[in-house]
Design a protein around this nucleic acid. Structure first.
Length: 129
DNA sequence: TAAATGACTAACA
DNA sequence: GTGTTAGCCATTT
């Protein structure tokens, strides 16, 4: 069922440029959610007229297995997204870097310290900013 | 109304 | 690097 949260998430997903990816956590944060699982729920029920394939998990991998997972990967590769041998993408290269002005102008929140913190962490697999 | 479920994440062992 | 735990919240039974 569609509600405002889903609408916000969908709008964000549609704003992701071709060849870029983002994470459930980042989307949720920008939409004002505290729970990333809700983003997954929204994706689960999302219409096919949106680039849902550009949303992956924080590890840089595709969360789904089976046919849907391979389809997602195929779609991304079709856009130029490169997967390493471990099936992960490089956020520094294909990670979506949303424009702060655009976000605020559309009523979204800026990416929280969550990601800045991660970028400076030793495990810096999420070097988004 | 209560319990279970899920395309998640962070923290810790 | 992997495996487990807890938290969180919308949706579905």
């Amino acid at each position: 069922m569609l509600n405002e949260l889903h609408e916000k998430i969908y709008a964000l997903v549609r704003a992701i440029p071709r060849g870029n990816v983002t994470t459930y956590g980042q989307l949720g944060a920008m939409a004002g959610l505290s729970d990333m699982r809700t983003v997954g729920d929204a994706m689960n029920a999302c219409p096919d007229d949106m680039p849902w394939q550009r949303v992956i998990n924080a590890r840089g991998t595709i969360s789904l297995g089976g046919a849907i997972g391979s389809k997602q990967r195929a779609l991304l590769e079709q856009e130029g997204v490169v997967f390493d041998e471990n099936g992960r993408v490089d956020f520094a290269t294909v990670g979506w870097k949303p424009d702060a002005a655009w976000l605020t102008a559309n009523g979204y929140r800026l990416p929280p310290p969550l990601f800045q913190k991660r970028a400076s962490a030793q495990n810096s697999q999420l070097n988004l900013f």
